[in-house]
Computed example of a mutant assay.
Amino acid sequence: MLASDIDRTLLWSHKRLGDVPPADLECLEVLQGRDWAFVTKPAYAALEAMAVTGELVLCTTRTPDQVLRLRLPRYRQILCLNGGALLVDGEPDAEHARSTADLVAQRRPMAEFADRVRHLAEAPHVRGLRDADGHFGYFLLTGDPVPDEWVAELEEIAADDGWRLTHEQTKVYAMPDVLTKESGLTRLLERADDELVAAAGDSLLDEGMLRLARHALVPREAYLESHGWDGPLTEATGVLAGEEIALWLAELTGTAMSSTSSTGLSSRTGAPATG
């Protein structure tokens, strides 16, 4: 089995396209009538090929609805909600949902946690607190400085509730500490009696998944690069890093594209993840 995060790993916003011509891109997400997120055509061809083999599992913090609005090839399995929900052929998997419910039952429910931090969501540097299908929440930040006392109070509440915080650029994720991508993947691996050969991701929420895999790859200039990642990085950045990752994963599954990519890379040898 192989695993990859979606956003800022394979899929990149219109802001991170660099000099790649529009004709060389595939739009996978439209928001409010605007073409929003893209992969390169070689990356899309690789994703199509891997969808056929079924070896790649996409892992994302997106909700199932947010995943299903993407114009992705039809993937057999997609882990959503940071490993908390599994889509199989586009439908929720009941067995995975039950095991997630058993795990998070050990922690304070999202509705109660939201009540306890509601006053923190009204701080001037916060645009709001979003609920991810009742599994976890995330604070949207304005970009203004975040006061130390706000962080300290949130950390105290989270620790008391069995939750953890992850600061990711313009968001602070708050979720039960048992809800992780590596936990979701481990459950899939146990069901399939498989191992995680390779993984790709860009954020602190991906790190456990990356270190679970025998091989790992992180986009250069990703948030994780500047926050403790000591393993392999792509050569490219932005949407071309996504292409590099897609082709690397495809090669590991034996479905590498015969044509060279627009970066001039025909393959990449993944190195084992450290740690």
Rank of each mutant, 00 (worst) to 15 (best):
L2S: 06
L2V: 07
R8H: 14
R8L: 11
T9L: 06
T9W: 05
L11G: 03
W12Y: 15
S13P: 06
K15P: 07
G18I: 04
L25E: 01
E26V: 15
E29P: 07
L31I: 11
D35C: 05
W36I: 00
A37L: 10
F38A: 08
F38W: 13
V39Q: 08
A45N: 03
L47A: 05
M50N: 11
A51K: 05
T53N: 14
T53S: 15
L56T: 01
L70M: 15
Y75A: 08
R76Q: 12
R76E: 13
Q77T: 02
L79P: 09
L79A: 13
C80Y: 08
L81S: 14
G83Y: 03
G84L: 03
L86P: 09
L87H: 08
P92Q: 10
E95L: 14
R98S: 07
A101N: 07
D102N: 09
V104H: 04
R107K: 07
R107I: 00
P109W: 07
M110D: 07
A111N: 12
A114R: 13
D115W: 09
V117S: 00
V117E: 04
R118V: 05
A121N: 03
E122Y: 07
A123F: 09
P124R: 08
H125Q: 15
L129G: 08
D133T: 08
F136S: 03
G137Y: 00
F139L: 07
T142V: 03
D144G: 05
D144T: 04
P145T: 10
V146K: 05
P147D: 06
P147E: 06
E149R: 14
V151P: 10
L154R: 02
A158H: 00
A159G: 07
T166E: 12
T166K: 03
H167V: 06
E168L: 05
Q169P: 02
A174P: 00
M175V: 01
M175E: 04
L188T: 08
E190D: 13
R191K: 09
D193I: 03
D194N: 08
D194C: 04
E195K: 15
E195M: 13
A198Y: 11
A199P: 07
A200P: 03
G201D: 01
L204V: 04
L205D: 11
E207G: 06
E207I: 04
E207A: 13
G208T: 11
R211M: 09
R211V: 04
R214E: 14
H215P: 05
H215Q: 15
L217G: 04
V218W: 00
P219R: 05
G228C: 09
D230S: 14
L233N: 10
L233A: 10
T234V: 08
G238W: 04
L240D: 00
A241K: 02
E244Q: 09
T253D: 15
G254H: 07
G254W: 09
T255W: 01
T255S: 11
A256S: 14
A256M: 08
A256K: 11
M257L: 10
M257K: 05
S258P: 09
S258G: 15
S259C: 07
S261F: 02
L265E: 05
S267D: 05
R268Q: 12
R268L: 13
T269R: 15
G270T: 04
G270N: 01
A271H: 14
A271Q: 15
A273M: 09
